[in-house]
Design a protein around this nucleic acid. Structure first.
Length: 677
DNA sequence: GAGCTCTGAATTTTT
DNA sequence: TTCAGAGCTC
């Protein structure tokens, strides 16, 4: 117990302090952008610890692992005498925490503790295999693609209504396929269970069902005196259900979020979770934070007007004591290259004024929007890191290499086996299936591959793979990086045969090996890769030098929760923001509006919104195929009245700016299957 | 049965 | 430009 109020507590504003020192029971903190949400959460962790709550009895659920690490580091610095706090608090994403708990409670959940986790593209591939087996693909080419199938499945299981509701509302063009989809999902679920595979949604579902059981829920829930959840506006109904289940013996739950920044509805996140919090958790206290510490008032004047158009929300008007500064600029550019040039010119100018590149960020709706800027930056030797978009893990050769590790970890993993087997010359789907079946009949032992009677064309490669498996078997206790080296010896020649430009790919594999060195066990490495993949391409280039500087490029989604002195929002043209993929319904457009809001509220001092008037269609093969864009509909005359509207360059582009315990075993697998009966 | 070539279609955000 | 699938050849 702290007798005197520590400085970090008295430095908070009254609303923040109220939230931080709130007693037991449910608490909802409605925190506008830049109102010290993170500081409040960090301080609350520190406060609880200072009140005698053991750190390992606190669960901090965040949106990314990095956010959790950062918060715990800050909390530890507040509480003297608790240097190990950061390591002892349970911190991480819902998915990572689910993984940790399910490994402990695997038996009760009816799972093998050796389950493997499928990332999105694994899940898609798996679904595709099932789809082909049920011959839903060749019969009619209009059957939804694997990615669409997975999206429908995911919406359904994350609590967005019945299959019919989901398809009707979000995928109306798939209505004729409802029966087939149901059959597909039933089979998908069944096979995952047989093979010990969990997709992202399963991690949440198993946790959810685990805590529906009174006694297990009490057991798991009683591990934690307090649960704190960040970014609550981006949780979905299943996650809300998990929290309800986790709070049976006490209701100490702190949720922090901003309904105006809800941008994950495609993951079934629902602002309703936040709006319904008081009903879900009776007796909840609500604290609203409205004083913004991040941005200068002119930036807030603009962003307040942007979000004013949103319909359903907790009302709040952000204000700042940071007066002065320049109004945000809305810059019309003739084309994409002028947009690039304008960004670069401003970036360099601000750097001359003393704002490091790392304190500046370029934000955009979709990952590909920065392609041309990346080229321009490279040609000027301006270093940058890009966040979001195609991940390291999605590259074919990386998936291949991970496939080898996965089959060793879980020999029942059919997707991984098929991937690995079909790399071999002379092995296609049929031989791969035969080899897999052979191993399955031999009790699922990968070593039995040596006894498989391969067709003549495949004999050599199969033997090579069998040798590899034998060697890897002997290296089980070695940690993943040694195993990767052994796999490389087998894989590099294969890769050269299968893919073009093998040199950069070999380089990527080197990086993977380096990354693996940090992990003691193969399972840990595989889990981390799926649950917390390396974010930026820069993360892989080895540890950066302290004084190294780079410009940040990021999708708006990946920029959530971060801030920079200078923010450039590019491609703010209708069709890009809002994305014309998301203008089907009022709700979708409103989410795009919140995206624009999130992007703009990242700015501390300077905000530039740019849009190219001439817009090139990258999809078409012809080089000068372009059309004229319009400024994003979100920049209405009320909004632009608070901005300086300028035309880049010489004005040619001038355009109109429009206004582990009980041996109980639950039948969770059955319940998850029953969804599709 | 494997693996090549040709054709047509689609194309966001992420744990 | 990339990806999936159909159809053809070895």
């Amino acid at each position: 117990m702290q007798a005197v109020s520590p400085k970090w507590l008295s430095d908070l504003n009254p609303a923040q302090r109220e939230a931080v020192t709130c007693g037991d029971g449910p608490l909802l903190v409605v925190a506008g952008a830049g109102t010290g949400k993170t500081l409040t959460l960090v301080s609350r962790v520190a406060y609880l610890v200072s009140q005698g709550v053991p750190p390992d009895r606190i669960l901090l659920l965040t949106f990314t692992r990095r956010a959790a690490d950062e918060m715990l580091r800050r909390a530890a610095s507040l509480v003297s005498g608790e240097p190990s706090l950061a390591k002892r608090v349970w911190g991480g994403t819902f998915h990572a925490t689910a993984n940790r708990l399910l490994r402990i409670y695997a038996r009760q959940a009816g799972l093998s503790p050796d389950f493997t986790i499928l990332d999105r593209s694994d899940a898609e591939d798996f679904l595709n295999v099932v789809r082909n087996d049920l011959s839903f693909s060749s019969r009619d080419r209009r059957f939804p693609q694997k990615a669409t199938c997975l999206a429908i499945y995911s919406r359904r299981v994350n609590g967005a209504g019945s299959l019919e509701d989901v398809v009707k509302r979000d995928f109306p063009w798939c209505l004729t396929w409802q029966e087939e989809l149901k059959q597909l999902f039933r089979e998908y679920v069944l096979r995952k269970q047989r093979q010990g595979l969990l997709d992202y949604d399963d991690l949440l579902l198993y946790w959810y069902h685990l805590v529906q059981d009174e006694s297990v829920a009490r057991d798991i829930g009683s591990r934690f005196d307090h649960i704190l959840v960040d970014e609550y506006q981006d949780t979905n109904p299943v996650q809300a259900g998990i929290l309800r289940g986790m709070r049976r013996q006490n209701n100490n739950l702190t949720a922090v979020g901003d309904d105006a920044q809800s941008i994950y509805s495609f993951r079934s996140a629902s602002v309703r979770n936040m709006l319904d919090f008081p009903a879900e958790f009776p007796g909840a206290r609500i604290v609203t934070l409205e004083q913004n510490y991040r941005s200068l008032q002119p930036v807030l004047d603009t962003t307040n007007r942007v979000i004013a158009r949103a319909r359903e929300r907790y009302s709040k008007e952000l204000w700042s004591e940071r007066k002065g500064g320049q109004r945000p600029q809305l810059i019309t550019c003739a084309g994409e290259s002028e947009q690039d040039e304008t960004v670069i010119r401003n970036v360099l100018q601000h750097r001359e004024q003393g704002i490091a590149l790392r304190k500046q960020a370029v934000l955009f709706r979709t990952a590909s929007h920065s392609d041309s800027l990346e080229l321009a930056l490279s040609s000027r030797n301006i270093p940058f890191h890009k966040y979001g978009g195609l991940r390291f893990l999605e590259m074919a050769h990386i998936k291949d290499l991970i496939g080898f590790l996965r089959v060793m970890e879980n020999p029942h993993d059919q997707v991984a086996w098929f991937r690995v087997l079909q790399l071999l010359s002379g092995v296609g789907p049929v031989t791969a299936a035969a080899a897999f079946e052979h191993m399955r009949l031999s009790g699922g032992d990968p070593s039995s591959l040596a006894g498989f009677a391969a067709p003549a064309a495949a004999v050599d490669d199969i033997r090579g793979l069998a040798d590899l498996v034998r060697d890897l078997k002997g290296m089980e206790s070695d940690g993943p990086s040694g195993q990767i080296e052994r796999i490389e010896r087998f894989y590099l020649p294969v890769m050269e045969r299968v893919y073009e430009n093998p040199a950069p790919r070999a380089n990527d594999i080197k990086h993977l090996g380096e990354l693996a060195r940090k992990y003691g066990s193969r399972r840990q490495f595989l889990d981390e890769l799926v649950l917390d993949p390396p974010l930026s391409t820069g993360d892989l280039a080895g540890p950066p030098y302290k004084d190294e500087d780079w410009l940040v490029l990021s999708t708006i989604h990946s920029a959530k929760g971060l801030e920079w002195d200078v923010v450039y929002l590019i491609h703010a043209a209708d069709g890009n923001l809002p994305s014309d993929m998301a203008t089907g319904s009022e709700q979708e457009i409103e989410e795009e509006l919140r995206l624009a809001y999130v992007a703009m509220t990242r700015a501390r001092d300077f905000l530039y919104v740019l849009w190219p008037l001439r817009y090139y269609h990258k999809s078409a093969g012809i080089s000068d195929n372009h059309s004229y864009a319009q400024c994003s509909r979100f920049f209405t005359s009320e909004v632009t009245a608070t901005m300086d509207c300028v035309v880049a360059g010489d004005g040619r582009g001038g355009a109109d700016v429009p206004g582990a315990s009980a041996p109980l075993r639950l039948n969770i697998s059955d319940r998850i299957r029953e969804m599709w009966e």
